[in-house]
Design a protein around this nucleic acid. Structure first.
Lengths: 337, 337
DNA sequence: CGCCCGCCATGAAAGGTTTCACGTCCTGAG
DNA sequence: CTCAGGACGTGAAACCTTTCATGGCGGGCG
């Protein structure tokens, strides 16, 4: 399977010094011309640029970084790329970063605090200019490592950093209102682990509203993904709720699958509502009603905030909370008469 | 929304020189001790290490990179993160890279050759040690940029690079055989744009087998994603095929949705088979029969090959082709009697 | 007892860039 | 015509590390 064919040696890249020499100017002038700084005559600048292009000059970022302390790279740390929420996020971050002139180191911490720690360490060592961080839990101990590196935190409210969040509590409220408006009285709630404040906020928002205007049939915590925990399955099997609010679309989909496997159907027998509006949500049959957060805007805001902080470290700290909205699809209807 | 709270200045990182001074040794000794190279007495080494730890020393990768020409970073360039195939790939690459001591720059080219070009340029400038590249098309013009940077190409057979592929033609054959074994005679094929050799191979493998043992009812090219091209919809609407082979799961799902919207059902009226085994495939109702390629193995092989090439540039070029396999689920059954 | 060798340790150069501080020359104003 | 000041250009230091070449020292062997 292996062809024998030896690649040639790496062609040495032209250095700035070589450009300068070839253009017959000083190193300093070449640098100024290329960075558009300092003072260089229009003619000389053009000449230098032409020579540089001719030699295929590309600045050595390592050297540059050494002088300036800027690497032009940022880190993005997310918990789990197989959760479709994160690729969407990553895509926007990458694109926004690119237009701001940054490359992005991506790391998937796979839900493990150790991996998270290691990942952050690697990034910091690489000298990223900043980090966008979606923490696994509220109390990740990476603080020490990240110290001194501009950081914006997504989704969780860690007061030591710039923070970008969505108004989860309001999302919970919206979900509950929607169900109640459809006529549901007995409503169950499945939430993620409360260790993550995001899960707590979602659940609490929902629960408060349900309690106030309807009946909270049951509430199970610590659901995590498609694979329903036994407790969740058990709750579903009591059949006492006509509607379910799930703390994430993945959980909602898991729930719908389980409901179907019980011989019931969604939404006729049980209405289901999710959280996140991942791409699957609208592809699922029935299409999942869910709470949408403006991922694109949040990602863009994260990059923008980070860049701001990088270029001006004494910015006042920011906390931005985005509004969420309910997108109504097929998985919710009125309760059976 | 913005709290006023000014972060403190960045705490300057300890430099190797400082470590050396604090330990009362020369710069060279400190360097040797930390890199485990050169010759340092056991006692001194330990002492230096202790001092370094105390000062929280972390080597400046930029400076290191300048001397050694190694950055410890690799680039991963994929076409589209919203296609769930790629996050899976990325996850494994990132993880494998991490255990090999590399960080990874991820870029999503969003299907645009310009973005691809720019992304590659950025990475090369950043001095990545190598690149794993999933090209958009067979003829991407990034060759010049990437010149001299170790590169492994995924999915496409570009003879100038190390190549990791899956045996798509065989996958096509498998799909066709499966349908034929189930009793189908009239089979339609939807393929991606032939500009991508992967799409061509998949389709050709399928078509050859269908032609040989059954009846190729129709073949539409240039399908791209969930959003069915009009030509595809039209073909489906002729209702002349009892089974459809799609060049990608995303396309298959699009097709199933369209079939359903025509008032038919899968697999009772039309059997559908996909390609890739993305996570949705098994979540979909009905679960999608598809061709699975060993993404994890491929990703791991890519990293391994790249690392090999980085550490030994004169390795003979490799081309590895992985076997694919059919995973039977619910979307295929026999034709209606 | 002397020599040579190996072990430890060190000084210094180099790597590519930015940027400070300084010169030169020309222009325009007085 | 003189002088000040602006525009343009340059030399050299500094950033932090690795690594080569060198040197001192002590011990084992002849």
């Amino acid at each position: 399977m292996a062809k024998t064919d030896t690649p040639n040696e790496p062609p040495r890249r032209a250095t700035l010094k070589e450009v300068a020499k070839a253009a017959g100017v000083s190193l300093a002038s070449a640098s100024y011309a290329i960075n558009g700084a300092g003072s260089v005559g229009e003619a000389t600048r053009e000449h230098i640029l032409k020579v540089a292009a001719q030699l295929g000059y590309r600045p050595n970022q390592s050297a540059k970084a050494m002088k300036t302390g800027r690497t032009g790279a940022i880190g993005l740390i997310v918990p789990d790329l197989t959760n479709p929420f994160f690729p969407s996020l990553a895509q926007v971050v990458i694109q926004a970063a690119r237009t701001a002139g940054y490359s992005v180191f991506l790391t998937d911490t796979e839900g493990s605090p150790e991996a998270e720690q290691q990942a952050v360490g690697l990034m910091v060592d690489h000298g990223v200019d900043g980090v966008i961080w979606f923490p696994i839990a509220d109390d990740s101990p990476v603080g020490r490592l990240i110290e001194g590196v501009p950081t914006v935190v997504l989704d969780r409210n860690l007061p030591a950093y710039d923070v970008i969040q969505a108004d989860y509590a309001d999302g919970g409220r919206l979900a509950a209102e929607h169900l109640i408006a459809a006529g549901h009285v007995n409503i169950g709630v499945i939430s993620g682990p409360y260790a993550a404040s995001s899960a707590r906020q979602r659940a609490e928002g929902a629960i408060a509203t349900v309690r106030e205007k309807a009946n909270l049939t049951w509430h199970v915590q610590n659901a995590f993904s498609l694979d329903l925990e036994p407790a969740v399955a058990a709750a579903l099997e009591t059949r006492q709720a006509t509607a379910v609010i799930a703390g994430a679309d993945l959980i909602a989909i898991g729930a719908m699958r389980h409901i179907r496997s019980m011989g019931l159907s969604v939404p006729e027998d049980v209405s289901v509502i999710g959280f996140d509006d991942i791409p699957w949500a609208q592809l699922h049959t029935p299409a999942l009603t869910t709470i949408d957060m403006p991922v694109e805007d949040m990602a863009a805001a994260a990059v923008e905030t980070l860049v701001r902080r990088i270029t001006n470290r004494s910015e006042p700290r920011r906390r931005v909370v985005f509004n969420v909205e309910l997108v109504a699809r097929e998985s919710v209807t009125g309760p059976k008469a």
